[in-house]
Amino acid sequence: METLLYMQTDVFPALLRGFGVSIRLIVPSALVGLAIGIIVGVLRVYGNSFVKIAADLYAGLFRGIPLVIQLFIWYFGLPYFKIFLSPFAASVLGFSLCSGAYHSEYVRGALLSIKRGQMLAAESLGFSKIGMIVSIILPQAVRRALPGAGNEIIYLIKYSSLAYMITCIELTGEGKILASNSFRFTEIFLTVGACYLLMTSVAAIILAKVENHLKIPGFEQQRT
């Protein structure tokens, strides 16, 4: 009875608050990350050599450094240069840039899988290079990148828990505080875990719906 009361009066409101913060971290990071990933992916394949090197460098850097370290740099490092970010802003920045680096890899792979003939046909109709990429290549590549990109978004939901390391108190942060006060680690972290599972499950359902919506007869089978 005491447990139930504690859960009801302390745990539930705190975790709900944390859940809200997590959602507000994840949604913009996922969208911005995806946008960065598409742009950088395109630059890595179609950019001139200077742009290509810069984009490769970005992807290498942000995939190669642990995300916690990146967050520390944004939050604790930037004030050194007189740039002060709130914990929330630093987290979204860190997540977006890291996620974008991963997405760019999926997009790059998808772009490279588009058959040369598609480009020849577009060029022969008088498409400019940018027009061809936007109207012909990307609509196909995005469909092919979707499974990988979805995977990255699921990851993002889970690594959003790192935000509490730079004092952005989201779901995991709230859980940590509750658990330290009450020593009910098992109950609280099981609940927190279930919340993440709920988020990833909903995300997986949404992603499957999107994939289904964008499905084109025979398009997947034409991978050669």
Binding site: K115, G117, Q118, L120, A121, A122, I136, P139, Q140, R143, I216, G218, F219, Q222
Partner: peptide, 8 residues
């Protein structure tokens, strides 16, 4: 020769 229709 191989048509090159836009697959999507």
């Amino acid at each position: 020769q191989d048509f090159n229709l836009f697959d999507h």
